[in-house]
Amino acid sequence: MNINMKYYIVTICAIFIALGVGILVGFNLNYDQALSKQQSEVLESFNTEFEDLKDKNKILKTEFDDLNKDLQETKSYINRNVKVLTQDVLTDVNTGIIITNENHDYSEDVETVISNANGNVVFNIVVKDNISDEAKLAEISKSLEKTFKSSKDVIDYIGNSLSNPNGYEGLNVLQDLGVIKINNMDEKTYQDFDSVVLLGDIDKEEGKDKFELKDKLLINNLKDQNKYLVAAAQSDSDITYLELCSKNDISTIDNINEGIGKVSLTTLLKNKNIVGSYGGSEISKEFMAYKNN
Rank of each mutant, 00 (worst) to 15 (best):
G20W: 11
F27S: 14
N28Q: 10
Q33M: 14
A34M: 03
A34V: 11
L35T: 08
Q39C: 04
S40N: 11
E41S: 13
V42T: 13
L43N: 03
E44S: 15
S45Q: 11
F46L: 13
N47H: 09
N47Y: 03
F50M: 08
E51P: 01
K54D: 09
D55T: 13
D55S: 08
K56I: 09
K58D: 09
K61W: 03
T62S: 15
F64C: 04
F64N: 10
D66W: 09
L67H: 07
D70G: 02
L71Y: 09
Q72L: 07
E73C: 05
T74I: 11
T74Y: 03
S76P: 02
Y77E: 12
R80K: 06
V82G: 02
V84W: 05
T86Q: 02
D88S: 11
D92Q: 11
G96M: 01
I97Y: 01
I98M: 00
I99Q: 13
N101E: 05
E102A: 12
N103V: 01
H104K: 15
H104D: 14
H104R: 10
D105C: 06
E108Y: 07
D109E: 05
E111D: 04
N116L: 14
N116S: 01
A117M: 02
N118I: 00
G119D: 06
V121N: 05
V122S: 02
V126T: 09
V127S: 07
D129Q: 08
D129N: 10
